[in-house]
């Protein structure tokens, strides 16, 4: 969506289905220490991205401090652009949250493609930058 194009709006462009769609992230987690896999329909959320790791929310009992995991992320934008990342990682911190059946884990990557990780992060960073630009234009400050 480029607001610099001041062309008349065609009715077909008036409502784009993709405007109502969010980026989708599919996450697969295998615990190579316990040789178990987090079920595909489990609630797994990618919360934070660090320089060399991530923070995830996983079902409780998925892993513990010191375990090694194999993680795979596949993100798809509303425009159907895909970007993905796979790595092995170590659980640096595993916090069981009191009132949730969730584990909050901090992972640091073990063997990974740095350039691939940067590309993956760029997928989110660029969307964040777009949002900030849009906000500034829409609000005027």
């Amino acid at each position: 969506m480029n607001p610099d194009h001041d062309t008349p709006v065609d009715s077909d462009e008036l409502i784009r289905v993709s405007d109502f769609e969010s980026m989708k992230i599919r996450i697969e987690v295998k615990n190579t220490t316990t040789r178990t896999e987090v079920p595909k329909n489990a609630a797994v959320e990618l919360l934070e991205i660090h320089d060399r790791g991530v923070v995830l929310a996983l079902p409780a009992q998925s892993c513990a401090h010191g375990h090694n995991l194999m993680i795979s992320f596949q993100a798809t934008t509303p425009q159907k652009k895909e970007f993905s990342f796979v790595s092995t990682a170590k659980v640096e911190l595993a916090e069981k949250l009191d009132d949730d059946d969730q584990l909050r884990i901090t992972l640091s990557f073990l063997q990974y493609d740095e350039a691939g990780w940067r590309r993956f992060c760029d997928g989110f960073n660029s969307r964040q930058a777009e949002i900030e630009e849009f906000f500034k234009a829409a609000r005027g400050f």
Binding site: D19, S22, E48, I49, H50, I131, F135
Partner: peptide, 25 residues
């Protein structure tokens, strides 16, 4: 985690102070 343009635009209309997507750094 809702990165849809419709959510972002609605937030901008309402003058939300800022909009941060997950995952964030």
């Amino acid at each position: 985690g809702n990165t849809s343009q419709s959510a972002v635009a609605k937030a901008a209309e309402e003058d939300v102070d800022t909009y941060i997507i997950k995952p964030f750094t």
